[in-house]
């Protein structure tokens, strides 16, 4: 990291930029080398690190799930099957508890969300410099990039795109099933004629519209905010390692404590995302408001 001097704010900023692939100001496709470049790339750019980690984690998860599913028997379950069954049963209970409609999709979706979000959050517990360092070295060695300009964020859920992507997918499903179950008229009627009756239609539209739009936003921002804050604190703690032996060992203690506390947040956020998805799907299927 010779090109710039290493400051605390530089360190933090570096950790908060994604590895972005897109078209730069001159119109050439490539990876952004600075945060400014990354934001100049506009909408048609991709955070390679977030997407890569989210897909890789899901693939790992589903590899094990599939392994368990293929060997699933009603007899005495093995270790892996036992674990996966525990998850399945937990998710199934949650779905049975909050979802009153009939839809084969909801429970598998809830399982996917829970496991996936949990794993993506779990990446937060990997010490903040390990994987970015590895990526920087790899980038320098293979693609002959300046290691300081290789950005790498390993926690997909600290990228609002990832959380928004999932929340929007849930949102589209919600609207799709709302229209499918209640009909287009029923869905629009819910927006227009509640809660105050048809003479107050504009007010109803504003109220219900806001509550509808707020669902995916709150769903994604809640997860993003929690994970982003957690990640930032890990980065701040990591800065302390450079501040001498006493503060460094104190930082080690802090990191341990925060990581243990963070396990709770990780699981809780995954669970909240799943439960809210189930509840939203239930609302979409409920004929009486």
């Amino acid at each position: 990291m010779a090109s710039e001097e290493l400051t605390s704010s530089g360190y933090i900023k570096h950790h908060l930029v994604n590895l972005t692939y897109g078209r730069d100001a001159e119109g050439n496709w490539g990876f952004a080398e600075t945060a400014e470049q990354a934001s100049e790339m506009g909408f048609w750019a991709i955070h390679v690190d977030s997407l890569l980690w989210s897909v890789v984690l899901a693939a790992i998860m589903f590899y094990f799930f599939r392994k368990a599913a293929r060997r699933a028997t009603a007899g005495v379950p093995g270790g892996l099957q036992n674990f996966v069954e525990m998850l399945v049963e937990f998710v199934d209970d949650s779905v049975k508890g909050s979802f009153r409609g009939k839809n084969e999709l909801v429970a598998p979706m809830a399982l996917t969300i829970f496991g996936w979000v949990f794993l993506m959050n779990l990446m937060d517990l990997v010490p903040v410099d390990w994987l970015p360092m590895l990526a920087a070295q790899t980038g320098a060695a293979i693609f002959s990039a300046d290691p300081h300009h290789v950005f790498f964020k390993v926690v997909p859920t600290t990228d609002p795109n990832i959380t928004f992507g999932m929340a929007l997918a849930v949102f589209w499903l919600m609207i799709y099933y709302s229209i499918k179950v209640k009909g287009l008229g029923g869905f629009l009627g819910e927006l227009a004629f509640q809660p105050f009756g048809k003479w107050m239609m504009p007010v109803n539209l504003i109220l219900e519209g806001v509550s509808l739009i707020s669902k995916p936003i709150s769903l994604s921002l809640r997860l993003f905010g929690n994970m982003y804050a957690g990640e930032t604190i890990f980065i701040l703690i990591a800065i302390m390692y450079g501040a001498g032996l006493v503060l460094g060992s104190f930082a080690g203690l802090l990191q341990l404590g925060w990581a243990i506390f963070h396990i709770l947040i990780i699981t809780l956020q995954a669970f909240i995302f799943m439960t809210l998805t189930i509840v939203y799907m239930d609302m979409a299927h409920a004929k009486d408001h």
Partner: peptide
């Protein structure tokens, strides 16, 4: 922290 096409990619992956 830029909103970009990652969002679409994640949605597709999700589905």
């Amino acid at each position: 922290m830029n909103i970009n096409a990652t969002l679409i990619g994640q949605s597709i992956a999700f589905f």
